[in-house]
Design a protein around this nucleic acid. Sequence first.
DNA 1: CGTTAGCACTCAGGAAACGGGAGTGCTAAA
DNA 2: TTTAGCACTCCCGTTTCCTGAGTGCTAACG
Lengths: 359, 359
Amino acid sequence: MELSERRKRILRAVVEEYIESAEPVGSKTVLSRAGLTCSSATIRNELVALDKEGYLEQPHTSAGRIPTAKGYRLYVNELMRERELTESETDKITKKLSGHAAGHDRLMADVGKMATELTSYPALTISAAAPATLKRVDLIYIDSNSFIIVLLLTGDTVKNKLVHLPFSFTENTLRRLSAVFNASFVGLPEDRITSDLITSAERAVGDTVGLTSVVAGFVIETLMTSRGSGANVSGEANLLKLPEFQDPDKAHKLINYLSDSQNISALTGTPDFGDVKVLIGPENAALELRDSSVVLASYDAGDGMRGLIGVVGPTRMDYSAVAAKLSFIAGGLSKLLGGGKAPPAGFGKLMIKGGDNDV
Amino acid sequence: MELSERRKRILRAVVEEYIESAEPVGSKTVLSRAGLTCSSATIRNELVALDKEGYLEQPHTSAGRIPTAKGYRLYVNELMRERELTESETDKITKKLSGHAAGHDRLMADVGKMATELTSYPALTISAAAPATLKRVDLIYIDSNSFIIVLLLTGDTVKNKLVHLPFSFTENTLRRLSAVFNASFVGLPEDRITSDLITSAERAVGDTVGLTSVVAGFVIETLMTSRGSGANVSGEANLLKLPEFQDPDKAHKLINYLSDSQNISALTGTPDFGDVKVLIGPENAALELRDSSVVLASYDAGDGMRGLIGVVGPTRMDYSAVAAKLSFIAGGLSKLLGGGKAPPAGFGKLMIKGGDNDV
DNA sequence: CGTTAGCACTCAGGAAACGGGAGTGCTAAA
DNA sequence: TTTAGCACTCCCGTTTCCTGAGTGCTAACG
């Protein structure tokens, strides 16, 4: 059933007050905060109703009310007012994003740190990586014992490796080798690169020393590792300042959970609220997150891929501020990575796409 | 003045007991632990003496003794017995190191995690990077708007970048361009690459669209970022399990300090004890580390460069076990990275040196 | 002189007792 | 339906008390 207007205002007042104070809020406080023209007794009656409906709860009799997950959910879905970012905040974000020249991993780490700074909660980033295939192979001859393998993958990622070998070869061999790779390895998913294929390539080149398998090994390894999505967490320590994490054990469990990137990657899901998804307390799949909330914003990482940036905090979180900030950051990232259609101001006139070559 | 044999045994007993229990140790406990044939009263007298000399202190009258930094120092320098690693420990380490094929950053992150697991303390790694210069430039023509820059740096590091440009060029131009770079940019430190130099290179190539400055920009950026040493921290959450970090504020300060890689890089110093350096409490330069100890082991990162791996923990730390473990890890890393003179068993017969190209 | 038994003293830290105060739910009147 | 009034609940910070581990000192002993 739909809540009355007054109850909504009361619920909002409770949620927002609790977000600020972290303490159960009583009828008088609600009264002054919601700006209603009634008495605290009336509020009390309404609070009882909201309690019964499951939006609020009492830590104990004769304490104020705190929102339940259901209460937060209603707040996030209907009651929350959109927050505008201040100019200094937007400035900070655009500056950080536009000024960035280093590699993808570094960029995401920096963006995560920025999100932590802006929200004061631990931030996480997840960079989705679609299974890549080879687009092109180049072998650069250095000397008779060394060469560089340069792989261009789908998604315009470039990977390289310098190889020293205990036997010598000629520049010409390398040229033939790369020709064979470009002819028969390009476009194959990693599991289609069989040892048969490698052997036949070896024969085609006339390679008797194993050069082919060195290159093939690197190709396979690269394709395998590029498939895994990169996760990144920063600012875990901020949890310790929050009253809900004064218990070191609680804090330890969550921080520990966050520090395993496996767990972070598992957070992937489709954002629902505009571009922002809010997971409140028990809505989280992971047990370790059941007392916390996660806010995730997705961004366009180019080539039809999506990445996520989010923060983790107590259920008592300033959802509207956090959502606004993450959404703005995600927007900036989309512009930066998503094909570069509309680079943020100051990004420069050249369309330079670094990929995640990790320079 | 030199301590008597008995006092040394007592000091050792106190330190080791305190390391295990984290509680002030009394005369009776010392007696049973040190295996001395005297009474607790005698121990008490000795304790008073050790107290006066500054090796021990009392948290309050009528409590047992805990070691001071001076006490720990003596223990580390003279009293500590070398710890042998169990076979399963050495196995674990060698396996981790030898099985590793991914890039340098990833390797160090994994090694850090392993150190955390083995010691249960937060671990850090610092990869020193000597100021690099260019050894060679290759430009790979992809299509008339795109090419890959491949830079080979001193230290056999390879960096790359895929560039898309809004104007077209020919393969021939790229060839001339790389020739010019190889002729006049190789061997220069980053600050000697002036705009004059770039302009004259531009003229030599006959480049009117700015190709040269794109490449030069990447060269400069690469040289600059490769100079910064990479630091990495893992397992911070482990601090929260320790009795000395039950105060969330204390834990927060330290974890926060650790999460800034600037601070970590600042730890660099020359190991003194074998290959292992121990910094006890106030011996640390940083205020935030004054209540903690840091154990660092250095490893040979190849090309005469050194890296560090270490852990941070309470002054009450099992120094001998930690030192032994770190030392062994560092040894393995040295073999792995240090020119590959003696690769650990199972590393394979090929001398493949990935450098830190971050594949 | 070093060692030891005995003893009074100290003090941290947990348990129990206490009191204030914020906030409730209920009742009865407007 | 709202409101004033009021008794009641229960958290939490404070105080008090007590126990026990461990000390330092003294005096006797070999």
